[in-house]
Design a protein around this nucleic acid. Sequence first.
DNA 1: GAAAAAAACGAACGGTCGTGCTAATAATCA
DNA 2: TGATTATTAGCACGACCGTTCGTTTTTTTC
Lengths: 206, 206
Amino acid sequence: MSISMAKGEKTKSKILEKAASLASICGLEDMSIGKLAKATGLSKSGLFAHFNSKENLQTQVVQWVAEMFTEQVMRPAFNEPRGIPRIRGIFENWKDWIEGDSLPGGCIMIASSTEFDDKPGAVRDEIVGMMSDLLQSLTRTARIAIEEGHFKADSDPKQFAFEFESLLHGYHLLQRLLKDPDARKRSDTAFERLIESYQADLPKPH
Amino acid sequence: MSISMAKGEKTKSKILEKAASLASICGLEDMSIGKLAKATGLSKSGLFAHFNSKENLQTQVVQWVAEMFTEQVMRPAFNEPRGIPRIRGIFENWKDWIEGDSLPGGCIMIASSTEFDDKPGAVRDEIVGMMSDLLQSLTRTARIAIEEGHFKADSDPKQFAFEFESLLHGYHLLQRLLKDPDARKRSDTAFERLIESYQADLPKPH
DNA sequence: GAAAAAAACGAACGGTCGTGCTAATAATCA
DNA sequence: TGATTATTAGCACGACCGTTCGTTTTTTTC
């Protein structure tokens, strides 16, 4: 009766998956329960019963996306060696993620950041937490690069995280709004310049 | 009868001003005609008559905001000397703009870029045009910095424009979503690093 | 001033929104 | 299997959506 966790959770996952797709295209607010019900084949009220408010649904979509992001962008990169290779891994995976390999509408985290920055409430709080965690992860990864001697010892890891994150936002703009065919090249160039400027002098002698 | 251009245009401006404020907070799509009517004191139908569809209203809001941006961010910076000072001017003015000195909800251009990147239509087209123009202006300004000898001769002005724009998006995130008290400092540091890396060697002897 | 034109209003439309209820169905447990 | 519980559906609600239309008010023009 209590440890079951059966059918309900299964369909809830299906719903959240569709919801993430839908929200990535039309936004978390514009994603209505009616549309989502149609997309999943459920009835509006049947779907609603899983979450007990729209705010709840939105919040859980954000959590779902955050897990997805961790799984597809961060975790694979942590198989890379510590330091710059790992940072490069995050960069590459994140670009793929933005291009819509997972969500058809691109990176919800970036989109919802601007959508909810002036809408107080539980959803905003969730997004703030998610983005804070992300920046913290990036900061940690930069700190590791310092420890490994890849980055200059006096580098500011939080500063690096900020500049790294900014770059991805820029890529998002070029790729998804402007559909600039040079988007990858532009962000790659900027990324190399960024790495270079943080990189420790005296690269290993060839 | 034809050259009049009187009361109508005046209230239309008032409407667009309020609309820009409202949209900066809740988004272009979530800004409803009803809310806007309440905010302006007009009746819903009276307001609607000025634009003949919501899409039209949204489009004109985007145009209005673009003009406002040019007026408050770009134009004052063009009083600065050509080259780096002018670029610095744009950067400073844009930060003020994002902080909400003009629009309470921050930079609509950035917000609507992610809101409409997957919604085809006239509004999206308008936003694309606006952002393209903006990047073009930034590119031109960087080219001038090359001409003035401030930037390295082999600098890629479009590349600079991309990195500059990215930075402002990053600032938007820190300032408006995360309310990071170090937002200014972070973006200032990144900006100086950006300028430095494009700057011509051999600064003029002191 | 009166006549003509422009601007704003009020009411209503078909739809969709989020959200409650109650009944039917499906899964689980005894 | 039958009883119980968890999951879905149907229906209805009040509110608001964008939009239309006919009327009234305000502004402009002569």
